[in-house]
Each structure stands twice: as structure tokens, then as C-alpha cells.
């Protein structure tokens, strides 16, 4: 088992834990946090491949920088949407937002 495989396995673990949090948690903030966790796991993959990949280069790290930026922007917008929703419905429980049903 090479080092790369260890890093990838760790990333897979973190990803799955984050996925579980997204699917299960009732508070919307925690859902957003779990999404951040999943993105982090992907970043770890990128950086691991940048060092241990077939052709090691800095491309992976640059890509992970971009990903991080995007994740931050998305978190900001997400929280803004959540606040707007909260003003309307006075709740942050995800299972009370079910207008898609009709």
C-alpha cells in the first residue's frame, strides 16, 4: 500500500462522512458544513496526486486553490440564502422545506 493509496483512502472516508451528514442532518447550517467537508476531501485528493501522482507537478495544488475559493464563495451564498429563507419561514429545519412536493 503506497502513500498515495493511504491519502486517497482518508479522503474517501472524509467524503463519506460528509455525505452522511448532508443526507441526515436536520439543521441547514450543518448540511452546509458537511458539504464543506466533502469539498475538503476532494481537495485532499488533488493535493495528494500533485505529489504522488504519475507526473508530480504543482497543477494539483493550483487546482485545489481554486476549489477552495469556490467553496468559500459557495458557503457565503449558501448562508445568505439560508438567512433569507429563515426570515420567511422562521425555521432552519431542512425537512420543513418541502414545497417541491406540489
Amino acid at each position: 500500500m503506497s502513500m498515495l493509496a493511504s491519502y486517497l483512502t482518508l479522503a474517501a472516508v472524509l467524503f463519506c462522512i460528509g455525505l452522511y451528514g448532508v443526507l441526515t442532518k436536520r439543521n441547514a447550517i450543518i448540511v452546509l458544513l458537511s458539504i464543506e467537508l466533502m469539498l475538503n476531501a476532494a481537495n485532499l485528493n488533488l493535493v495528494a496526486f500533485s505529489k504522488y501522482g504519475v507526473v508530480p507537478s504543482l497543477t494539483g495544488q493550483v487546482f485545489s486553490l481554486f476549489a477552495m475559493t469556490l467553496a468559500a464563495a459557495e458557503a457565503a451564498v449558501g448562508v445568505a440564502v439560508l438567512i433569507a429563507l429563515y426570515r420567511r419561514r422562521a425555521t432552519v429545519n431542512v425537512d420543513e422545506f418541502d414545497e417541491l412536493r406540489r
Binding site: V22, L23, V94, D95, D98, E99, L100
Partner: peptide, 8 residues
């Protein structure tokens, strides 16, 4: 049921 987590 309209809940995103179910769809996910």
C-alpha cells in the same frame, strides 16, 4: 415528499 435529503 419534497425534501431534498430524500432525493439526495
Amino acid at each position: 415528499n419534497g425534501q431534498v435529503q430524500t432525493y439526495g
